[in-house]
Design a binder for these strands. Structure first.
Lengths: 146, 146
DNA sequence: GTCTTTGCAAATCATTTGCATGGAA
DNA sequence: TTCCATGCAAATGATTTGCAAAGAC
């Protein structure tokens, strides 16, 4: 499920976003990762792809992508740091272990009916939702009752 | 639906948390508010109640209450600031206008069945979830198509 | 060529922490 | 009395910003 540079360029152009190698590198890393990343994670990973990339540019890029709706901040925070992830085209949610912080994706989403109901009862024009489910993974459950 | 100081004291004692006037003031403001608040919001509001309260103490209090599960960080962030809200005893989700940021609570939650399904298919011990729904409120829709 | 994006370094701003004092049980 | 919680001020660490140079279209 690798995404080519051309595809990324096209996706950005479609949203009226100019392509730069920094943007492609950052977006590429977001595509590759299934877990949300901090700005610094992104910087380190994307820096390997693009020598000329600075941390402040990573911040500028994720801010811009958030505004365009391409990226979203995760509800989680690691320490004081924000976590960023692609706004999934294929709708998807995460299941997060509250002990080891392992994150696995959940398959289906039961909320589309719920959204239409809400739209009807509130008059809001629903644009999306964020759902995170928390629990203890099997490994952590076994390791200790805590 | 006002909460008396005695009730708050009792609630804290029940969780093994010592009562101080700072804690009661902060918790009281969280009780009163239906929207998530920043640490500074809390500081300003609670300071009116309790002269002797400092911002760093607000941080220490909300951190502690988060660990005890009394308070949670909202998935939203206002600027770079974290938002805090009471962990609802009555399970509840928010509907957030992406334009004016008005927040209204949603009545029912369709996820309990979903949680059992997840528990079965992943082996996780599910402890809870966070759901936020985004949309444009009727007023903002009328104001402009943007 | 023109306007936008970036790198760098300095500036900000939220959050955290050390230490001496005040307060709860 | 005995710790734990707090205030204050200083430290930290993430994020932002100004400005000149490099890059996209």
């Amino acid at each position: 499920m690798d995404v080519t540079e051309a595809t990324l360029r096209q996706a950005l152009a479609g949203k009226g976003i100019k392509s730069t190698k920094q943007r492609l590198a950052v977006l590429g890393e977001l595509e590759k990762s299934d877990a949300p990343l901090t700005a610094e994670d992104l910087f380190m990973k994307a820096h390997a792809q693009c020598e000329t990339l600075s941390l402040s540019t990573v911040y500028r890029i994720v801010d811009m992508l958030c505004e365009k709706g391409v990226v979203m901040r995760s509800g989680l925070m690691e320490g004081g740091r924000s976590l960023f992830e692609l706004t999934p085209v294929v709708h998807r949610h995460n299941l997060i272990c509250v002990r080891c912080h392992k994150i696995i994706p959940l398959e289906d989403c039961p909320l589309s009916q719920y959204e239409s109901d809400i739209a009807k009862s509130t008059g809001y024009n629903i644009s999306g939702h964020k759902l995170e489910v928390y629990g203890v993974c099997p490994k952590c459950s076994k390791d200790r009752g805590h």
